[in-house]
Amino acid sequence: MRVFDRHSVRRHRERAAAGFAGHGFLFDEVAARLADRLDDVRREFATILDIGARGGVMARALAARGGDAPAALGDKSTVVIHSDLAPSLLAGLPRAVVADPEALPFAGGFDLVASCLDLHWVNDLPGALVQIRRALRPDGLFLAAIFGGDTLSELREAWLAAEIEVEGGASPRISPFADGRDAGALLQRAGFALPVIDTDRITVTYADPIALMRDLRGMGETNAVALRRRTATRRATLFRAAEIYGERFADADGRIRATFEIVTMTGWAPHADQQKPLKPGSAAFKLAEALNGEPDQSARSQ
């Protein structure tokens, strides 16, 4: 399926590259949260692949952890490969590779593959996850965050209502995002072991909807749906969407809310020494006994 126009995705990122630092606060926050996940991982990562580098956001978050944390980039022996669809977002980064997650040019050997808010633009996410697993060495870690289904729900509702009211119909304005409940199944389908999925929400307030749209443009996150309308947006529709947004989603101080749902995916490349779930029926005691605190001696023979 061709849901997204990948040429437009690259063009939007190229356009945003020069001013990305002034709009990339959300990427900084999510990258820091991803880096924090490594505090519970007791190992070092000598080789790291950063998919969707966006000027090195993820690498900076890893380096900022410092101390004795694994994967701290202060160690000169750590090798980080930065990749991105847009060449301009790789400017100045060492070991930079222009690469599309839909066709990764890496054969394997990475200890860690990390991706901060990049893979939600991929048309074939299951296929991309398979390639990422193959890029990892056995027992290598995959850690990524993508936008989830509730992201920009307020903007989606405002655009839909405005287009129907002003133009008598609606067109795709906000990208479809993955459902967090499906992400775990996708990791398993791609062959990852010990998959873990969790979701979080970040709410950002803006003076008005136009400021939100300006930020999205500055992030390179504007509409790239393949079936989007290609004609210019009518001023009447834009202004009506802004009015509806303010009417439905403004706080008492007049600022509007924007929701970003963050889906975090963690998985490991399979390895023989990894923990594995017990076979059904192999437990020594019944669950009811554990809850009641009264062991049933007969259960031990089962």
Rank of each mutant, 00 (worst) to 15 (best):
A18F: 08
A86Y: 02
A17M: 08
R13G: 15
A69D: 05
F20Y: 15
A290E: 06
R234L: 14
L143K: 03
G246I: 01
A16Q: 02
D150H: 11
D100E: 04
A32S: 14
D139R: 15
L89R: 12
T237P: 05
A128L: 10
H120R: 00
R255G: 04
H7R: 14
R137V: 08
P138A: 10
T233D: 07
D75F: 03
L194I: 06
V57W: 01
P87N: 08
F177P: 04
A252N: 11
R248D: 06
S301E: 15
L155Q: 13
L125Y: 01
G55W: 10
D179M: 11
T78E: 00
A144S: 15
A46Q: 13
S88G: 09
S171N: 09
R173E: 10
G180A: 14
F20A: 09
F106T: 04
R214E: 14
A283W: 02
P126M: 10
F25V: 10
R257I: 04
A21N: 03
L227Y: 00
G74H: 06
G127W: 11
S171I: 08
G184L: 10
I132S: 04
E261G: 05
A61F: 09
E243G: 01
L155M: 15
C116R: 00
G92F: 02
V80I: 11
A236R: 13
D139H: 13
G108K: 10
V3H: 02
F25L: 11
G109E: 06
G127D: 05
L160S: 14
L291Y: 10
I197Q: 01
D124E: 05
G180P: 07
A16V: 05
V57F: 02
D139G: 13
A158R: 03
E154K: 04
L38R: 02
V97C: 05
G24R: 10
G246A: 04
N292M: 09
M1C: 09
H12L: 13
V97E: 03
T264L: 06
R234Y: 05
Q274G: 07
D273P: 00
S8N: 01
A288K: 12
G184V: 07
R2G: 08
D28L: 11
L212P: 03
I202V: 14
L238D: 06
R248L: 13
A21L: 09
T199G: 06
F147D: 01
